[in-house]
Write a protein that binds this DNA or RNA. Structure first.
Lengths: 207, 207, 207, 207
DNA sequence: AATGAATGAGTGTTCATTCAT
DNA sequence: TATGAATGAACACTCATTCAT
């Protein structure tokens, strides 16, 4: 009782350590999985790089798969920042948005680590919605303001688009959709947003 | 005498079956490894897709690694054809060549399946020399004829360049070379061929 | 019909080749199995050393096991010759016989290759009877003539003793019989032959 | 404070279990490998006999080979005890030592399990030094005291002799050294220790 | 009869995951 | 909660044996 103050402090420490461990694990997993691929990365190697015991990982992630998905989320964030950088000089938000979608679609169908996780489609789509949403939704809104798109609910658009991207990636990987058609898929997704297909077709690759 | 004809036919059958099996195995391995990555692909799955017994694979390839390298060779050929297609409208052979090198370097440092095999550097370099050589050497010669390059021995140039590409990829993956510097590496390789660095720098990414 | 003469000659050649192959195979198997043990020896290695195809071995021996037993027979013969040599200066045939049995028992319980084949007890006992019989039976007869043994049927004695040796070896290997008791087993076997146990006990190890 | 006692107890339990498992594994491996040979013994069978899971073995031994070497060390110890027993009535320490070396050399060149591990020469020599050293060095010292040998450093002598024994065994197995020459090898080793070759030649086999 | 390619059962080994401490 | 030893399922690879030629 008298120690409650201390306990709070202790909990704070515990919570801090938990966060630190979780971040260290994701960071370690990012490093190892990016270098060797998900399969070749071993949980023990990741644990050691994160400086925790082998069993500790499972206090933070239910399985290797869950950890891989956490890593993928980080990769999504990094991808968003990279897109941000590459489009920093582009004024037209519609273009930025189109470029972003094309980039994500490209990553999802070419990067093995993404591909291997696509079977968890709902989880991936949700991660996409959460981690790239802040950027994508901002661009949609700007494009709407600029009269390039026409939608009352940017959030909903991005939520649907997230799922559509995952679905498209799955189709492409399954070979049901030629890689060459990718570009058109991007366009169709954009069309949902009300921009003319022709214009989109002309813009997207121009970046 | 009459049996000699039969023998030829018999040998033909055996040889034909061996070729068919080998091709079926490479094809199956291509499919599975491209989809799941080298590690996640199992030899049994590949064997079944190729319609041979589990042990038969080892009559054709000493190890999973050797099979993966055979697959990589196929990927090199496919990449050459793809580059061919993407540069079909480009007249300047020097540009085509530069684009090709940039593309290969990109694949070698981004495609996980390539990356995981780079430790077999000499083998990879040799495969690169053999499988992409016909295209690369042709381009070098054309560029020489057009006065863009200056070298008496296109074959030797490509042989050296093959090793240089692998070495550069290794350095990049090891983090000793920033990914951003890749482009400059391409240029340096081209410089071996006598074309001015400035011009190359301007051309390569323009395609 | 008119070719019967030729056929005989042909068969002769064929038979000769068969014998040559069989001997080459046993010889090769002896070499390899003695060096590496039965398990570590591969049928392919043996075939190559005998200069025949991999499948050919099975035209001469039903299985690796059968080949190993043929090898064991050779080892038995060699052992007999070796005993012969080591006892060349011993006059007392009973001593020679006792030494021989002790030597065989020792080999059967210490040499891994023998031990591993003991489970084929009947076959081994028969081989022992056939391959060491000429020597053993001769010694028994000599010992009878010298009044050291008393039996009307040396052949039968050796036949029974062969089985007894195998049985004793099995028991010793199974741990049901201490290795220290081996000597006494030898004696009991000898007792079957009518020689006084005491005398035998005194003689056997003295060589 | 009160937990420190518990901790000690806990560590003790873990450590105890680890020791028990290790010993159980070696014991099980001894049994199975002695009976069937190293190759025919399967890791699963050993694990089951030791009452642990299949994978657990690899927490204690890096490979089947390492386990086999641990077994060989036990066999060395047993051999030392056996030599001890067989020479219990011999007073001359030099004779005991000579007999011991001859016995080891014999085992190393006749016992298949030893032979198959000789390629790990350095490891085997080291094991020989450690496991038979206490006995051998004691005999050397006694022999020195009795004026039979003359060396200031028995430990060093045994260390060198260990390597020499392994080297001799390798040569004998390779056929570079006739088995008949073994005895002389023993003598030469003994000569390193200062005892006259003639005397040694007369003593060693006399036991 | 001889060959050597095909086969698949069996083995050593790895590693994600669990669990006692 | 953190740890690391224990576990067993899964996989690469070997090799005795079969069989088409």
């Amino acid at each position: 009782m008298s120690s409650s103050g201390t306990e709070i402090e202790v909990e704070g420490r515990v919570a801090r350590r938990r966060r630190r461990n979780r971040e260290a694990l994701i960071s370690a997993a990012c490093t190892v999985m990016a270098e060797k691929g998900i399969d070749a990365a071993t949980m023990l190697e990741i644990a050691q790089l994160a400086d925790v015991g082998a069993g500790t990982v499972y206090n933070y992630f239910k399985s290797k798969d869950e950890l891989a998905i956490a890593v993928l989320e980080e990769m999504m964030h990094d991808l968003a920042l990279q897109i941000e950088k590459q489009t920093s000089s582009v004024d037209d938000a519609a273009r930025v948005y189109a470029f972003g979608i094309a980039t994500v679609l490209n990553e999802a169908t070419n990067n093995l680590n993404w591909k291997q996780l696509l079977y968890r489609s709902e989880v991936i789509a949700d991660a996409l919605y959460r981690r790239m949403g802040p950027f994508a939704i901002r661009d949609i809104r700007r494009a709407v303001e600029a009269g390039r798109f026409n939608t009352p609910d940017a959030d909903l658009v991005w939520r649907l688009t997230s799922h559509a991207i995952v679905g498209a990636s799955l189709s492409i990987n399954a070979g049901q959709l030629a890689g060459d058609v990718k570009r058109e898929i991007v366009i169709r997704l954009l069309c949902m947003n009300g921009m003319g297909a022709d214009e989109a077709l002309a813009l997207a690759p121009a970046i």
